[in-house]
């Protein structure tokens, strides 16, 4: 069972400004989901390597060759924030 304070803490970690109704609803629903997931304990996974890549690929690397990007302006245009000198202007971090 999760407490409301735990759910508030998760919301903070997830950068989600949830209201009290949502906190209450998610406390109940996430608790129910975690309870349902208890069944996973029945599966013996001792000594099992967790899956990293399902078709078995490892260390696929792209060639280290510089290429021209033609999209930088278009990508910058996607930003809803003010722009200055080819950069996005944001609020203070601290």
């Amino acid at each position: 069972m999760l407490t409301k304070d735990q759910v508030r803490h998760i919301a903070k970690l997830a950068r989600l400004d949830l209201n009290e109704t949502e906190i209450e609803k998610f406390t109940k629903q996430l608790s129910a989901i975690l309870e349902h997931a208890e069944m996973l304990k029945e599966v013996n996974t001792e000594g099992v390597e967790p899956i990293a890549q399902i078709t078995g690929l490892t260390n696929i690397q792209a060639g280290d060759e510089p290429r021209e990007s033609t999209k930088s302006e278009a990508l910058l245009e996607c930003s809803p924030q003010p722009k200055k000198d080819g950069m996005i202007k944001v609020k203070n971090i601290f």
Partner: peptide
Amino acid sequence: LKAAKVRAL
């Protein structure tokens, strides 16, 4: 991690 192991099985 538990889920990733069950996934392997």
